[in-house]
Computed example of a mutant assay.
Amino acid sequence: MTMADKYLMGAAAGELDRMLFQGEMFRPEAERLLDRCGPGPGGRAVDVGCGPLGILDMLSDRVGPGGEVVGLDVQPEMLDFARVLVAERKLDNVRLVEGDAAATTEEKGRFDFVHTRLVLMNVPHSGAVLAAMVALARPGGTVAVQDVDWVTRVCDPPHPAWTDLVDLVAELWRRSGMDVHLGRRLPRLLREAGLTDIGVDAGIRVFQHDHPYQTLLVDRAELCRDALVDGGLTSHAALDRLTGELREHLARPGTVVVHPVLFQAWGRVPGGPGTDPAPGS
Score class of each variant (00 low, 15 high):
residue 270 P to H: 02
residue 205 R to Q: 15
residue 252 R to C: 04
residue 42 G to L: 10
residue 44 R to V: 06
residue 64 G to I: 05
residue 83 R to E: 14
residue 230 D to R: 15
residue 149 D to N: 05
residue 255 T to G: 13
residue 119 V to A: 00
residue 30 A to D: 04
residue 182 L to R: 12
residue 210 D to I: 01
residue 85 L to D: 06
residue 218 V to N: 06
residue 258 V to W: 03
residue 181 H to T: 12
residue 77 E to F: 07
residue 264 Q to G: 13
residue 237 A to I: 09
residue 238 A to T: 10
residue 88 E to A: 14
residue 83 R to A: 04
residue 50 C to I: 10
residue 253 P to N: 11
residue 37 C to K: 07
residue 264 Q to M: 12
residue 124 P to S: 01
residue 214 Q to W: 05
residue 15 E to I: 04
residue 36 R to H: 08
residue 15 E to D: 10
residue 155 C to A: 14
residue 201 D to L: 01
residue 206 V to R: 14
residue 161 A to H: 04
residue 59 L to P: 09
residue 47 D to K: 05
residue 5 D to C: 06
residue 95 R to S: 12
residue 17 D to F: 03
residue 184 R to Q: 13
residue 24 E to D: 15
residue 198 I to N: 08
residue 245 E to R: 08
residue 119 V to P: 03
residue 133 M to G: 07
residue 159 H to M: 03
residue 155 C to Y: 02
residue 63 V to A: 10
residue 71 G to T: 09
residue 124 P to T: 00
residue 138 R to C: 04
residue 64 G to S: 02
residue 72 L to T: 02
residue 163 T to L: 10
residue 61 D to R: 13
residue 133 M to H: 01
residue 14 G to D: 15
residue 264 Q to W: 10
residue 27 R to H: 06
residue 161 A to W: 00
residue 157 P to V: 07
residue 128 A to V: 02
residue 154 V to C: 07
residue 173 W to G: 07
residue 106 E to M: 14
residue 205 R to P: 02
residue 181 H to E: 11
residue 238 A to H: 15
residue 69 V to R: 02
residue 94 V to Q: 02
residue 115 H to T: 05
residue 67 G to F: 00
residue 159 H to P: 01
residue 32 R to Q: 11
residue 76 P to S: 09
residue 10 G to M: 02
residue 52 P to T: 09
residue 92 D to N: 11
residue 147 D to S: 12
residue 232 G to N: 04
residue 122 N to K: 04
residue 250 L to P: 08
residue 90 K to F: 05
